[in-house]
Amino acid sequence: MSTVGVVRFPGTNCEFDTVEAIAGLGGSAEILWHEDTDLSGVDAVVIAGGFAHGDYLRPGAIARFSPIMTSVADAAKSGMPVVGICNGFQVLTEAGLLPGALQKNRGLTFINEFQAIRVESTNSALTGAATEGQELDIPINHFEGNYTCDDATLASLRDNDQIVLTYVDNPNGSVGDIAGVCNDARNVVGLMPHPERASHALLGSEDGNVLLRGLLEAI
């Protein structure tokens, strides 16, 4: 069975939820410590949410220098699915594996609430099991989720269909209502919403499962 590696930095706090959500879909997942460099046992990587290295300097700024990130960058280049959720998205932009950056929310509030998330593209390692235009009820939980990039980058994201998820009602000021983007090769995806927190009826929504199932199917 293929296995998803879920990266744990000091300060990560969503890794076990992510493992649990993947297991709930019949998938196999294991935790990878940030000092590991061997990805030979996994077929996909999720960088889970939290506050890697305390989010000091900028979220993801120190995490991108953790030993595992060199291996993650190599794996991403070779086509392995790599997904960054929330803090994981911030790590992937800091590492240069995804375009743009995540800024402090408009209004300077930490936002923890369910959002309607629209699937804009099903052509990515995360969104392949969803349908275009589908609206998903998935929570966000962040202070720095305000996606920003220059106009040229935004235009190229649009031209290449790299905006995979948007907010129906923009909560944080993200340019283009962006909630998630993928890279050129479509195997690296970052999103601020937490699909693992919408993976069971007891959590209030199961809408995150269609994304996680998409990841399992992309392997």
Binding site: K104, R106, N146, T148, D150, G173
Partner: peptide, 12 residues
């Protein structure tokens, strides 16, 4: 921040 990049802290 670069000029042109929105600064939520500055605006607040």
């Amino acid at each position: 921040l670069h000029p042109g990049i929105a600064d939520p802290q500055g605006s607040t």
